[in-house]
Every structure is written in structure tokens, then in C-alpha cells.
């Protein structure tokens, strides 16, 4: 993804404020460069310079594979008195770092602000990141709309555009949307009918094992009561085994439903991402 979403370069300040930090960054000395950008923030009075420094520091932190730190750093930006392009760069970087940190809500909220407050050209540039973020949030209809918007504003010719729109339509077909399991429902099922929650989550063997262990517990109780006539021992041992597996089964059903949902979403989104990457390659963002 990093390859796809290269950030646009800055026009940059005319002065030499960034000279040392930039050269450090270019040399790959990210830790030192980040420190020098932080120094610029510390010393600068101009919010534009501070914002540029924070943006560049976030690039260094991303270079150090630390998207969480980059996100935290970017969330310090004060958006007062800066140009639209710098607002866009900052919001986009924040969204990108948030996406890499798997904070999809934050990413979506930053991109929403781009949509609300910035001109259309910026919305078009942010559309792909917005679409894949919405995919993660399972808002596929909105993601589809974003991609269509992006295609309509891309520099593809009419044939390429139609083909891209058809691709989007095919992949984002409501019939193809993955079906998710409700973890709460899985848990409820297992509460009333042991093993049914696991079946609902699509795990037959898990359900069978859970039921078998509970039947063993009941069997132990039955043997104790009816065969060897050790009533108390039978009940306690049988109940002990049954109760352990019953409670575990309820929790396991919920866990399995969540795991199933995660995998389903991941598989579907990988498919979508492949299509989006292909689209993006056909019409790369120029800046």
C-alpha cells in the first residue's frame, strides 16, 4: 500500500528551515530527521511551518515503520490559518497513518473532513484511500460510491471509464457482499442449545466436540446415579464436567463468530483491494 499512496511533495518553505532535517531524511536517518522536524516545531511561530514539520516528521516515523507514532504526531496539527493544499496533505497523512494503525474510524473521519471542507480535486485524490477505509468499516455501498466518484473524475478515456465502472459494479454487487454472523446471536444459541452457536458460526467439529464433552458430563452423572449409585459423586462430577464445557461453549461460539467475520471481511477486502489497485494503476493519481 505504501507504494500506491506516495504522498505529494511540498512546494516547501522558501527558507532554509528544513534544510538539515530534509537532508537527514533523504539520507534515511529517520530518527535524527524526526528530531530535527520536532525542533522546527519547537522553534517555529508560524503555524504553516509547524504543520509542514509535523507532516514531514510523520513521514520519518512511517519510514521507521511506526504508523501509530505517526498518527499521534499528526493529530497534534492545528488547522488554523493553513492553505487548502496543506490541510489536504495533513488530513490525508493522518488518514493514511490511521489506516496503517488499523484505526479505521479515525481514518474515515479525517477523509470525511476532506470531503466536507476541501475542493473536489482533493476529494478525488483522497477517494481511493477513503474507499479502502470504508471497505474495512464494511460500508461497501459508500466505498463503491467513492470509487465511482474517483473514476468519473479520473483522466481515463470514456471506454476505460465505462470498463472501470463495470468492474466496480461487478465486484461491489450487493449479492456478493459477505454475510456476517452475529456474535451475540451465536452466544445466545449456545446458551439454549449447546453447540448450536458453533454450528451457526460454521464450525461443525467445534460444535460436535462441545456437545460430546457435555454428553460425557451427563453420562458421568447418569453412571453415578443409576449404575454405581454414588449419587452425590455422580452429580458433582457430572455437573462439573458439563458446566465447564457448557460455559466454555457459550464463549467459544461468540469467539468463533467474531473470527469468522474477521476472515470473511479480510478475504472480501483483499479481492476489492486487488481490483482497486488495478484501477489505480490504469489511472495513477498525478500531482
Amino acid at each position: 500500500m505504501i507504494c500506491i499512496f506516495h504522498f505529494a511533495g511540498y512546494s516547501g518553505s522558501e527558507n532554509n528551515t528544513f534544510q538539515l532535517a530534509d537532508s537527514l531524511k533523504d539520507e534515511g536517518a529517520f530518527e535524527w530527521a524526526a528530531l530535527e522536524y520536532e525542533r522546527i516545531c519547537f522553534e517555529a511561530f508560524d503555524n504553516v511551518v509547524k504543520t509542514e514539520a509535523l507532516n514531514k516528521k510523520s513521514d520519518c516515523l512511517l519510514g521507521m515503520n511506526n504508523p501509530k507514532a505517526a498518527q499521534k504526531n499528526l493529530l497534534r496539527i492545528n488547522y488554523f490559518g493553513i492553505s487548502d493544499s496543506l490541510v489536504y496533505e495533513s488530513r490525508f497523512r493522518t488518514a493514511y497513518s490511521s489506516y496503517l494503525s488499523e484505526d479505521f474510524e479515525q481514518a474515515a473521519s479525517q477523509l470525511f473532513l476532506v470531503d466536507q471542507f476541501l475542493p473536489e480535486r482533493f476529494q478525488q485524490k483522497a477517494a481511493i484511500l477513503y474507499a479502502i477505509t470504508l471497505n474495512e468499516l464494511r460500508k461497501w455501498d459508500q466505498a463503491k460510491a467513492k470509487l465511482e466518484f474517483w473514476v468519473e473524475h479520473s483522466d481515463l478515456d470514456s471506454i476505460g471509464r465505462d470498463s472501470a465502472l463495470m468492474n466496480i459494479d461487478a465486484v461491489y454487487n450487493a449479492d456478493n457482499y459477505p454475510k456476517f454472523r452475529d456474535p451475540e446471536r451465536a452466544s445466545t444459541w449456545s446458551t439454549f442449545i449447546p453447540g448450536s452457536g458453533q454450528l451457526y458460526s460454521g464450525h461443525l467439529w467445534d460444535a460436535a466436540f462441545s456437545v460430546a464433552m457435555m454428553v460425557t458430563g451427563l453420562g458421568l452423572a447418569a453412571v453415578g446415579i443409576f449404575v454405581i449409585q454414588y449419587y452425590v459423586a455422580g452429580v458433582i462430577l457430572g455437573y462439573g464436567v458439563f458446566q465447564r464445557f457448557y460455559m466454555a461453549g457459550v464463549k467459544r461460539a461468540e469467539y468463533l463468530a467474531n473470527r469468522k467475520n474477521y476472515r470473511t471481511k479480510r478475504d472480501y477486502n483483499i479481492e476489492l483491494l486487488a481490483m482497486i489497485t488495478l484501477l489505480q494503476k490504469k489511472s495513477p493519481i498525478h500531482d
Binding site: Q19, L20, D22, S23, L24, E27, A29, W32
Partner: peptide, 10 residues
């Protein structure tokens, strides 16, 4: 030369 050189050399 500063921009084009390595950091330590600068």
C-alpha cells in the same frame, strides 16, 4: 554543498 552531502559531513 550541505543539502547534497551526508548529514555527518554537513
Amino acid at each position: 554543498q550541505a543539502v547534497g552531502q551526508s548529514v555527518d559531513s554537513v
